[in-house]
Design a protein around this nucleic acid. Sequence first.
DNA 1: ACCCAGGAAATTC
DNA 2: GAATTTCATGGG
Length: 273
Amino acid sequence: MSKIIFENVHDLDLAQTLDCGQSFRWSEREDGGFSGVAFGRSVVVYLDGERLVIDNAREEDRELWSSYFDLGLDYGRIRESISRLHPVLSEAAKYAPGIRILRQEPYEALCTFIISQNNNIKRIKGIVARLCESFGEELPDGSYAFPTAERMASLEPDDYAPLRAGFRNRYLLDAARKVYSGEVDLAYCFDAPYPDARAELMKITGVGVKVADCTLLFGMHRIEAFPIDVWMRRAMDALFPGMTAGDFGEYAGIAQQYIFHYSRMHPEAVKKE
DNA sequence: ACCCAGGAAATTC
DNA sequence: GAATTTCATGGG
């Protein structure tokens, strides 16, 4: 195992990106790095100036990690572009300029955002951790991969009880079975027209518009997606009255992340009364 | 005891 | 059909 190093990395802040509610599998270490698992690889990542270091990684996975952190996209340019759309959006973008949209595993994004509904980030992380420890493959360092749809589809509803995910248990099972059987085609969602991709995911019980949008944004890198949850609803009402998802352009998903993060950091600015 | 949490299904009007 | 209630669980 060795280090993969990416030079001249801009517009990346690991805390803003890994701890902003798009992924639930990273935890910050004492030394400021983050440890986590993606694509069945357990690594530690940290920033050293403009060098992004992926530790405990294999050199052959260089492209995988470049893709995961979306290093091919110029976020500085995009931020300039969307900042011109609205002055408040410009403020929000300035507040967390290091957010990037990760390219997570589609099935993992699907499951974690099913778990996210009517839930909070701290508890989501706990349920996801128990899901991986219960049904995911154990990795050499003792951590766990995200479970496969095949494994999850083979279980019975009662097997999900230890996750303490409540009413979401049957949603997870339905997602696993439809993905494993091919009834829901995740690969199709990468390139299909947006409404069709969304409809494909909504064939799953427990997947509505918002969970579908999050899955498309964080699992299929459909950055035109603009998920609206309770925080975004408040922000839209308070800061962008009259505007809709379509007004935020082809990079709406990135704008959405700036707004979501800004709203959570400034609850008084968006909460009514 | 009550309210809320990166919602969606089930029920009721 | 649109509006309201319910759904588990845990923390404040």
